[in-house]
Write a protein that binds this DNA or RNA. Structure first.
Length: 151
DNA sequence: GCCAACGTTGGC
DNA sequence: GCCAACGTTGGC
């Protein structure tokens, strides 16, 4: 079982949205490295739900992968901001996962807290200039995050 | 709103 | 296949 960190802007879709909708297709990933990570995800993997572009940014909750190699439908929707004119249904470029809500953490872990508690090498999002919206998290690091978030 | 860091595009 | 120009991300 692998842990991930998934970034989202809560102004468009945050942990509260996921709690209400119960599950969602993690659409809109348009970066090949992030997509490649998503392709390796397995059902049952757990994802830390990270709120970006808000003050303060941080880890807000947990979700679980419930389906893999899901074709991102927004790539074929000309009205979507994620429309990709070069992708075809025969050879879709963008696969993703479906995730279900697991929990909203009692403690929101801000990026300052994360920086204080974890090394850059443990959490890729702490690295300067890191923009990847999907990153793997080691199990030892993940367990420490869970301890802090639920304490 | 700024801007550093990074990814993508496309002419050559 | 190089690389300049451009677009985007995301913390501040």
């Amino acid at each position: 079982m692998q842990y991930w960190l998934l970034k989202s802007e809560p102004d468009s879709f945050g942990i509260d949205h996921l709690q209400r909708s119960k599950s969602t297709v993690w659409d809109g990933v348009r970066n090949y490295q992030a997509r490649n990570y998503l392709r390796t995800a397995k059902v049952g993997d757990l994802g830390f739900f990270y709120h970006s572009k808000v003050q303060p940014p941080g880890i807000a909750g947990l979700c679980r992968v419930t389906a893999t190699t899901v074709v991102d439908p927004t790539q074929f929707d000309p009205t979507s901001q994620y429309f990709d004119s070069k992708s075809t249904p025969e050879a879709p470029r963008w696969q993703t996962v479906k995730v279900a809500f697991v929990e909203k953490f009692p403690n929101y872990l801000t990026i300052d807290t994360l920086r204080a508690r974890f090394a850059e090498s443990e959490l890729m999002i702490l690295q300067k200039g890191s923009r990847l919206s999907v990153t793997p998290v080691g199990s030892a690091t993940a367990e420490r995050i869970l301890d802090l978030a639920r304490a």
